[in-house]
């Protein structure tokens, strides 16, 4: 799914190029890697941390308090710089508008909640690190990983072969995308491009699902049929367009879709799912993964931490809290096969 779910993702390589430009502009600045903040109260080294998942969810989750024991074995795998900093800076690309249930501002109207930040907190607890959430735009999430501002991205990022040229992945959830339509619509997605002929579909810019959709579009074009793709600045405006009939369907991450369906059930424009699809294309189950800078040595301890949570059952409780049990994976892998590069 999506990679992006969270809002408009713009091209990461372009952002990186700009940073290079900025570097060239300033000859007198010095670059050091020293972390500026030191950990204050990380989880007690030999103890365990209580992580509250599904808190302040405004109805998107059932809150559960999980007691997570630190794993010294996995902590030992961490790169020394991260371990000594005592912190895990977790990048999220949720600005300006969040996306329930993946990541959004909680019902206290200030705390960041959602499945992604919660998993970040759980993993940090396993590693004995203090989680520091760094919410930014989708673009800045990746630039932040490149520049070292973020240790890891937990932000519904899809494992793709193209991204592997710059990043390492530790998978943690299935990546499924789906079509959301108004309940009054009779249309259903049958898994083929043909069923999309003549439709107007909204999709997040720069996301994986956009790539998938574009592939279908060119396929239909070759057959002389049309598929219109529309972009909106955020979910709010996309849902407004769906309500008003400006688009036929919204091709979005399945968790968002499922959540939005429950949200609209009681309104005068209820919606439903018109079909799911793997975020890695028809032949491969897409995976959502924790994303780190290539070769920084964090992917392995992260995958181990997720597997640790899978084994002790906290993983299942986390998914259940967010109604995402359908998206469970049996095990976390480092750099599993992702959406192929040759897509369009």
């Amino acid at each position: 799914m999506s990679s992006t779910v969270f809002r408009r993702a713009r091209l990461v390589p372009a952002s990186a190029a700009l940073i290079a430009l900025a570097g060239g502009l300033t000859a007198c600045a010095s670059s050091t890697t020293a972390k500026t903040e030191t950990a204050v109260a990380a989880a007690a080294p030999a103890g365990s941390t209580i992580v509250s998942v599904g808190a302040l969810a405004n109805g998107a989750a059932t809150e559960a308090k999980l007691t997570v024991a630190q794993s010294d074995t996995i902590r030992a795998e961490l790169p020394a710089s991260v371990r000594s900093s005592g912190e895990l800076t977790i990048g999220l690309g949720l600005l300006p508008a969040g996306s329930a249930p993946l990541g959004f501002t909680g019902s206290d109207q200030k705390t960041l909640t959602g499945s992604e930040p919660d998993l970040g907190r759980l993993v940090a607890a396993v590693l004995g690190l203090k989680p520091v959430l760094n919410n930014a735009t989708w673009d800045n999430l990746f630039v932040g990983i490149d520049s070292g501002r973020n240790d890891v991205g937990f932000s519904n990022i899809t494992d793709t072969e193209q991204r592997k040229t710059k990043y390492d992945f530790a998978s943690y959830r299935q990546d499924n995308v789906g079509f959301e339509v108004l309940k009054s619509s009779s249309w259903t997605f049958d898994g083929t491009a043909e069923s999309l002929a003549g439709k107007t579909v909204a999709v997040g810019a720069g996301t994986n699902q956009e790539k998938i959709l574009e592939k279908w579009q060119s396929q239909l074009k070759a057959e002389g049929k049309t598929l219109t793709i529309k972009y909106f600045p955020d979910n709010n405006s996309t849902y407004l367009a769906l309500d008003s009939g400006k688009i036929d369907t919204y091709f979005e991450p399945n968790p968002e879709l499922a959540y939005h369906v429950t949200q609209t059930a009681r309104t005068n424009t209820p919606t439903r799912s018109a079909g799911k699809f793997s975020g890695a294309g028809a032949s491969l189950q897409g995976l959502i993964a924790a994303t780190t800078k290539k070769g920084d040595g964090l992917a392995k301890p992260l995958a181990d931490a997720v597997n640790y949570l899978i084994k002790n059952g906290d993983y299942a409780k986390w998914l259940a809290a967010w109604n995402l049990s359908d998206e469970a994976v049996p095990t976390s892998q480092v750099n599993p096969p992702g959406l192929p590069v040759t897509n369009s």
């Binding site: 952002s15 700009l18 940073i19 430009l21 900025a22 570097g23 300033t26 000859a27 007198c28 600045a29 010095s30 670059s31 050091t32 890697t33 020293a34 500026t36 930014a136 673009d139 800045n140 630039v143 932040g144 520049s147 070292g148 501002r149």
Partner: peptide, 18 residues
């Protein structure tokens, strides 16, 4: 975007002889 990530790339600024 550049300014925001500037601080991530250059942790210290110095005043002195160019």
């Amino acid at each position: 975007l550049i300014l925001y990530n500037f601080s991530a790339l250059y942790k210290t600024l110095s005043l002195g002889v160019p």
